[in-house]
Design a protein around this nucleic acid. Sequence first.
DNA 1: TCCAATTCTTGAGCTATGTCAAGGAATGGC
DNA 2: GCCATTCCTTGACATAGCTCAAGAATTGGA
Lengths: 235, 235
Amino acid sequence: MENKKQVLAESVFFKGLPEPLLHQLAQIAQEKKFRRGEMIFLEGTACSGFYIVAQGQVKLYKMALDGREQILYVLEAGEPFGIVPVFHGHSFPASASSLTAVTALFLPKKEFIALLAAHPELALAVMAAMARRMRRFAAKIESLSLKDVPARLTAHLLYLARKQGGTSQITLDIPKKQLANLLGTSAETLSRIFNDMSAAGLIRVEGRRIALLDHTAFQGGTIMERGTVTQKRSG
Amino acid sequence: MENKKQVLAESVFFKGLPEPLLHQLAQIAQEKKFRRGEMIFLEGTACSGFYIVAQGQVKLYKMALDGREQILYVLEAGEPFGIVPVFHGHSFPASASSLTAVTALFLPKKEFIALLAAHPELALAVMAAMARRMRRFAAKIESLSLKDVPARLTAHLLYLARKQGGTSQITLDIPKKQLANLLGTSAETLSRIFNDMSAAGLIRVEGRRIALLDHTAFQGGTIMERGTVTQKRSG
DNA sequence: TCCAATTCTTGAGCTATGTCAAGGAATGGC
DNA sequence: GCCATTCCTTGACATAGCTCAAGAATTGGA
């Protein structure tokens, strides 16, 4: 109970809300556990509530009939998922599964909406979180349509660098195959582009550890647009 | 005034809200007019409120440095835009401009948030609209990443058919160049794919009027996945 | 410590789609 | 009804990135 409240208090959704409200939220929240690689929900399935990640990583993704997959978002502790059908429609717009062992809090739709209606500050927090998610989605659309793969990767590396405290020594937080699915490319192409960027002296890759070398090129955004890194294929 | 209220009453955001609330909303709404092709706001610009389309069409889009453009959404009468920065951050995540002459209502952020806090039903309506938008964005990401251009076009034609009352005689509501930008392709490629689909007996194209011929192929979703229509280029 | 499984890399070849360039059609304002 | 725009099409060509296939490297379990 206390530890549910703790999780809620630190989540993006509920950060900064008054203690009594957090208490009420903790009362309706149910803890759920998932093993690594487990399906949490499937696109198109009916929804009776949403989740907040307490521990571990969850991927939100769309899958094609032939098995290709596009990750929309990788969620970490404190982030909500499955909110769309709470407010519109009945089914999940995407699938979710765990990338690691996961603990999540489940908040049933009905009880949550009752709380929402009674607490405007809660509603505003939810809207802010949804707006943030929309920014991310808009950026992803832009990225898929207007940037080539090197530019998408560069943007992602910069994002990680910021998230990991502005260091130039970053660590990929997901396997490269998953990163490829997140960037909308294949593992093979991603691997080749790591090579190209290494050969160009921009980065050094050692497993999941990546050093950003040419700081000016990164900071200046030189590689942010199309075609800059591109050169003959490594080999 | 009355006519502002009318627009609000019929909008996606505010449909079904009680009369007195609509009246209050109409009081804070300011009418703005734009000529065809005018910029309404630019990505990255600070925002002091959001808009609702009263008449005409607005495109929400991202633009690359080299001028290529990806349309996120085409908005018509009743649809809100520019809401993201009302709830998160300060700047618009995308640009907006008019595809036709446009009349819009502008709702200042501060006054709107005051109303929101006082009216939970308004907040729920806003969240529903945002959730709907997120579904669309998720579908667009899926489409760009997992579908080829013929499949994207097919999905769009089906969407138009539904929107235009389930008929198989549909009319494109935007120029083909804009449609290309909406589907994440070039005008040239779009043109060629119209040819291929015509040659395959799936559609007949006459300017902006399109007849869906092979109903089973469309309904069954045969062309929804990759590669089905693809064949040698027309020529 | 070794095996099994997963994850990653590399090679080779193909194709969907982009770009450039130019001509033709349609549209709207006056 | 005509001109000026805008819009659309077609051809020729280039290429980014995908797929298939196989081998290498890493990881974790027992």
